[in-house]
Design a protein around this nucleic acid. Structure first.
Lengths: 239, 239
DNA sequence: CTTTTAATAGTCACCACGACTATAAAAAGG
DNA sequence: CCTTTTTATAGTCGTGGTGACTATTAAAAG
């Protein structure tokens, strides 16, 4: 490593960008804010902000998450560092290095637009195009990462409320992957994986929906899936 | 996102840290440099350096990789961004945010210690302890990531020369995972995965070693492994 | 009361994989 | 030269995970 005396150039600004994902009405949504000023004025962007001198990027990301969503307690939410985007010129004004995170929410409260934030709202993932800066890329990377981690971790429960049915859990996979899954096979697989889910004591069931009432489950103690729950191979697969 | 006018604090220094891994004599080695100055003078550290104003972190990492290893062409080497370490106080002198990368090398030339770098050398992974700063953590994260990616990507070929035998490829897995693998089963699995490896035309074989000459293979076109090559479950598994 | 929807139970066949045996072809050591 | 050792390679066998599928139950919707 070089000596620090060679540090003779303008410094960097360090920010965090958040891809906050949730499931609303059976489709994937992402939290976006509308930019009020140039550049990209009027365009949608991922929420984010500067890392403060006494913060780690993780701390800054959780603070921004609380500010943007208006949630009281974000300590239990799944926050995952994606990667860092550092291309020169990704912000036309100055040299900005941004640490990107993905956050997964079970329910979807309307954002309260806390503080001086511009308009904030949930947008369907498929409609979130033409974002400011390189946020299209960041959002796509977040989607890829989440989709991949569903295969070999228990991440799917992060999209679910504390108690959920296997149908809700299956919809997480179907929505993120964009595929259909066989109901009985999914059920067998999940229940056969120790620590993935555990039944709510008392045999509670969720009624009020269509069809037969479903048993309620909680997230188990496991964090990894052995063996993984592989997504079905795409149709047009390369030979 | 807040306005940039609120950017009123001391800036960050941005560096890259590299966990350069290779296989030497059947064991995993990591490239380390000896620190010449405080803090951590005399301790081993991961190579790295400052990101220049006109560089991305990836560009800086590749530049540092070339400088530290003395290799002419590092363009084909696998370089993977791990994550960014941004805890306040991880460098006692100033606020440093470091983007960590893992680099995988097939052969292991002795480092030439290019430029003003202190002493640099390969150290067995198991002996690389008590590193400077938070580099123990970064190195462990690199090992975890590489071990995990061996399961579901073709990353293992990045440790191999352009032409390699299935025995060499198997040793990559065994060395990184620290487990033994059944030779015939490994062979069947690799050859059954389309695009993982392809035989060298002409049926070239590697002689000179012990035992029966082995057929030579090249890395195939695939980048992901479907289905994955799962590592054998650990003995003391939690119930 | 019928239809619809979803949860749940169960069956069956295939195949990927672990465990294992056997054979071939080289070097090493007498 | 012959035996041992080492590694590559071929093949077998049984189990279990999984996809595809059918059947049943229990609720809401019409």
């Amino acid at each position: 490593m070089r000596g620090y005396d060679k540090y003779a150039h303008e410094p960097f600004a360090v920010t965090v960008d958040l891809a906050v994902l949730t499931l609303r009405a059976g489709s994937l949504h992402v939290l976006l804010v509308e930019r009020g000023q140039e550049p990209y004025a009027g365009r949608w962007a991922l929420p984010g902000g500067f890392v403060r001198p006494d913060e780690s990027a993780e701390t800054a990301a959780r603070r921004e998450l609380a500010e943007e969503t208006g949630l009281k307690d974000v300590s239990g939410l799944h926050l995952e560092q994606l990667r860092t985007y550092s291309e020169p010129g990704r912000d036309p004004r100055m040299r900005v290095v941004s640490v990107a995170f993905a956050a997964l929410l079970p329910d979807a409260p309307e954002p309260t637009g806390g503080g001086d934030a511009a308009r904030a709202r949930w947008l369907p993932y498929d409609d979130a195009k033409q974002l400011a800066f390189d946020h299209d890329r960041i959002l796509a990377d977040a989607h890829d990462r989440v989709g991949a981690k569903l295969e070999y971790t228990c991440l799917a429960t992060a999209f679910c409320p504390p108690e959920f049915t296997l149908g809700e859990l299956r919809q997480v996979y179907e929505t993120v992957w964009g595929t259909g899954l066989d109901r009985p096979n999914f059920r067998r697989k999940v229940l056969a994986t120790p620590g993935f889910v555990e039944p709510v004591p008392g045999g509670a069931r969720l009624t009020g929906g269509r069809g037969k009432p479903a048993a309620l489950y909680r997230a188990g103690a496991a964090t990894a899936l052995h063996p993984p729950l592989l997504r079905p191979p795409r149709e047009g697969r390369s030979a």
